[in-house]
Design a protein around this nucleic acid. Structure first.
Lengths: 217, 217
DNA sequence: TATGGTTTTGACCATGCGGTCAAATTCTTG
DNA sequence: CAAGAATTTGACCGCATGGTCAAAACCATA
């Protein structure tokens, strides 16, 4: 991989992100990407094996950066020492912060993940991909329940809810760049804090709770 | 509108739902829809002004049926007499039940809403459409807060979370037709019950809306 | 059965798509 | 500078798309 090739690939990926974020998956043709980057269409084929290769490289690139971002910021909380509540909060804050900083990148990834299909017609980033994300969350929830920290609920359903709210945040911040991401993050962490903990249990920060209630089975 | 025309339009809409649900927005070409319905492509153009007209008619049709379904089942809870908690529960149960009964219809609608763009490149069912849905939920939340029934939270963020979880359920039930929809619904209503109420407040114990429901097995 | 409106077909069109490739250009290096 | 490798272009291909239209088929009714 020469330095020229690496730079060109990065440039093409960046412009692909822009075009997908602006025009959606269906609007992101090789012609439009090339025009947006100021290069010829054939050059894309020279650096990528095809459109599928380009889109999948883009998804893996952004996903790797996102995972690295979250782990660098909050990785220490995910060990066996931290509480499940702290891990959940770190997961939410890390994900939402990365989206707030790179809304177009994540927006393009979500757009591709939802639409890109292989030759067999199945979504390339489908059930298996999703399962990887859900499993990590479900582990946090299961740990929190076994530690008596969380109330009884289906970890998988809660994981789905968390993922859908995170995905939804992507479109919120893309549709309204002036969105107060800090406030949104606070609201979402509070939402899932209440949703996961025992009713009446101590809240994480500023909550003044009074009554103690026995947990309904 | 002759009886022939009405029947043909309904038939075309039904087959369009099938094709969109199976092959996604990008895979739903007029040729494929016509082949799936066993008719010629020109016939679609005879009954609909164009592809955009067809897709928008489909969205409006399913949306109307869904709204009617929810209102017939749970409309009585949305008056000024019912509690906000009951209204929220009814909203969730009604939406999830309709999706569970018509997953392909709703799946097609979500697919179209997320991808269909007008000549200007903007999503046809974009911000304004979404706002209509969010406002209804936000009203429930605001009412619940003013009545002292709900804790303090941003009604809009909570509305977004509810909508995203409902949308997510569509894909869950499409991906896995054997999904236990009743269990999923119970989990989701409990999730948002805990998320909205004051910590330590009494939970809803009995189902207020599904007493006369008949469960076919 | 003859008439006239309704419905349906299938061929056809312009357009844009992803992909290919020989030729031209630029870069590296001896 | 010269030669070969790496990079880039732009024309071209086959194909699928959404859309149009004259002709054919169908159907109700006088």
């Amino acid at each position: 991989m020469t330095v020229t090739e690496a730079a060109r690939r990065a440039q093409i990926l960046a412009h692909t992100i822009d075009v997908v974020a602006e025009l959606g998956y269906a609007g992101a043709s090789l012609n439009r990407i090339a025009a947006h980057a100021g290069i010829s269409k054939g050059l894309i084929s020279y650096h990528f094996a095809g459109k599928a290769d380009l889109l999948e490289a883009l998804v893996h690139d952004v996903f790797a950066r996102g995972g690295e971002y979250v782990m660098e910021r909050h990785g220490h909380v995910f060990g066996p020492d931290g509480t499940a509540g702290a891990a959940l909060r770190a997961y939410l804050e890390g994900n939402l912060a990365f989206i707030a900083e790179h809304p177009r990148d994540v927006g393009a990834v979500v757009e591709i993940a939802r639409n890109h299909r292989g030759a067999d017609g199945a979504l390339v980033f489908g059930a298996a991909w999703e399962e990887t994300l859900l499993d990590l969350l479900a582990q946090i929830f299961t740990a929190g329940q076994e530690a008596g920290e969380f109330r009884a609920f289906d970890p998988r359903v809660m994981a789905i809810a968390v993922r859908r709210v995170i995905d939804g945040f992507t479109f919120q911040v893309m549709a309204d760049p002036d969105l107060d991401t800090r406030s949104f993050t606070t609201e979402v962490t509070a939402l899932f804090d209440h949703a996961t903990r025992h009713p009446g249990a101590e809240r994480l920060e500023t909550d003044t709770t009074t009554a103690q209630e026995t947990e309904p089975s």
